[in-house]
Lab assay of single mutants.
Amino acid sequence: MAAAAAAGAGPEMVRGQVFDVGPRYTNLSYIGEGAYGMVCSAYDNVNKVRVAIKKISPFEHQTYCQRTLREIKILLRFRHENIIGINDIIRAPTIEQMKDVYIVQDLMETDLYKLLKTQHLSNDHICYFLYQILRGLKYIHSANVLHRDLKPSNLLLNTTCDLKICDFGLARVADPDHDHTGFLTEYVATRWYRAPEIMLNSKGYTKSIDIWSVGCILAEMLSNRPIFPGKHYLDQLNHILGILGSPSQEDLNCIINLKARNYLLSLPHKNKVPWNRLFPNADSKALDLLDKMLTFNPHKRIEVEQALAHPYLEQYYDPSDEPIAEAPFKFDMELDDLPKEKLKELIFEETARFQPGYRS
């Protein structure tokens, strides 16, 4: 834990890192770190609560700039109880001085990944967590956004079992017609939660990839272990087919990539493993919904509104309290091709509203 900075004593240090967030945020305490930044909790002297502050230093890398800009653009436009918001952003007053960006968010005690390492969940908890994931996802999908990296560590939890989806750095506007060349190379989302079509096709992607990830998360809540822990690309596919069985001819016809289709045709026939054999203690309604989410063919996979209306979630289902976005989200430009200098300018502009004396 960093010592509390005395008023006016300059930035606090946390594990050798400068955290320049005073005077409003003090009493910093280390939480963890990701690929390009550290997260601390801090005391907000204005709202009198502890908050989470993520320090991001992305400006050396085009990919990190892209992810940072995506996350900020999306989260500043989203407003939903099951999606983490941005409360404040701290950065230098000029673009030349801006080396880091500090993002202030609600402090959540833990995440689903940490929880599943230590606790076996009751059916009631599984049901409530799944409902909140789908409630947040309904809003995301209504904005025409794909999260693309749903996994237990991106689901934040607090002691009252509130759940918030975080990390929109890989999110995209849904565009089933656009052929994202190089899709697989830039697709760094965790393999275990990846839909089979991501490994088999490169053309376009749809909201059904997020539903697949939610199915993987439900299976993990039922058993405290990942359902498809593939060691590499082909191993991942083999794990999936080992449980779902061989795809039907109709399902194979959806695979545009001939090499991928021929690979699947070359494999020995596998039978589907019954879900109640894998999860003998699970609620039968939970397994019915799991089956509809972990469907090989993305066109037959359940959609988020149908999933919310499934009998497993009937005690929570309330369409009048499951809000959607006001308007579909649009990125003005494809960020993939922009140089990091341009992305830095866009991050600077996007964060201006939090600067003292800002006038829109």
Rank of each mutant, 00 (worst) to 15 (best):
L222E: 10
N262Y: 14
I56F: 15
S41R: 03
I74Q: 08
Y128V: 08
P152Y: 03
E305R: 08
L155V: 01
R225A: 07
V214H: 12
Q17Y: 08
L290Y: 10
N257R: 12
P298Y: 00
S320N: 05
I255M: 08
D88T: 04
L289Q: 14
A42R: 03
D288P: 04
T206N: 13
K73T: 08
M13H: 13
D179R: 12
N271T: 09
L75C: 02
R359C: 01
N224A: 05
G245S: 08
G85H: 03
L184V: 08
V214N: 12
D175R: 11
Y43I: 02
A286V: 02
P356Q: 05
M221L: 15
A2D: 08
K340G: 14
F129T: 04
Q105I: 05
M199I: 15
A92P: 00
A219C: 12
Q315L: 14
P93M: 05
N297H: 12
P247C: 01
L107C: 06
I140H: 07
S223T: 14
P298S: 11
V46R: 06
S320T: 13
I211N: 15
V101N: 12
Q355H: 12
Y139H: 05
L75T: 01
Y358S: 11
A260P: 01
D251Q: 06
N27M: 08
C216V: 09
L290N: 07
P11A: 13
A327I: 00
W192I: 13
P311Y: 04
L156T: 03
G34N: 02
I347A: 07
Q315N: 08
I83T: 00
I227M: 04
L121P: 08
D44N: 14
V49G: 00
S213Q: 06
I165P: 05
M199V: 01
E326Q: 10
P268V: 03
D210I: 04
R50W: 09
F228L: 15
R353C: 05
F279M: 09
M38H: 12
H147P: 05
L150A: 04
K340S: 04
H178M: 10
P311T: 14
S284F: 08
F279C: 07
P356W: 00
M333N: 11
I103K: 07
P319T: 14
V214Y: 12
L170T: 04
S284V: 10
R67K: 14
I324C: 06
A3N: 02
Y102V: 05
H180Y: 11
H232R: 06
N27L: 12
I86S: 12
R91C: 10
M333F: 05
K114G: 14
H61N: 10
D149W: 05
F19H: 14
L157Q: 14
T190S: 15
K272L: 06
R194M: 11
V173H: 07
F19D: 10
D283A: 11
R24P: 02
K114Q: 14
F183L: 15
V39P: 06
K342L: 02
E322N: 00
K207F: 11
I243E: 02
F348G: 10
S153E: 09
F19V: 15
N257V: 10
G85R: 02
K164R: 12
L184I: 11
A171Q: 08
I165A: 10
A286S: 14
R24W: 00
R225T: 01
C161Q: 10
V39T: 02
G34R: 14
P176V: 08
S208R: 03
V18A: 04
D318Y: 14
M98C: 07
M38K: 15
N276K: 15
I209H: 11
A286H: 01
I256R: 12
D210E: 13
D283I: 06
S320C: 06
T94H: 08
R15E: 05
V273Q: 02
L290M: 09
L343K: 09
L28G: 08
A5P: 02
D318N: 15
S213L: 05
L146T: 04
I256E: 11
I74A: 09
A325C: 03
A9H: 04
K207P: 13
V145N: 01
I140R: 10
N123V: 07
A174D: 05
G8V: 15
I133E: 03
L244D: 04
M108Y: 08
Y205K: 13
I31F: 14
L346Y: 12
F296Q: 10
R359F: 06
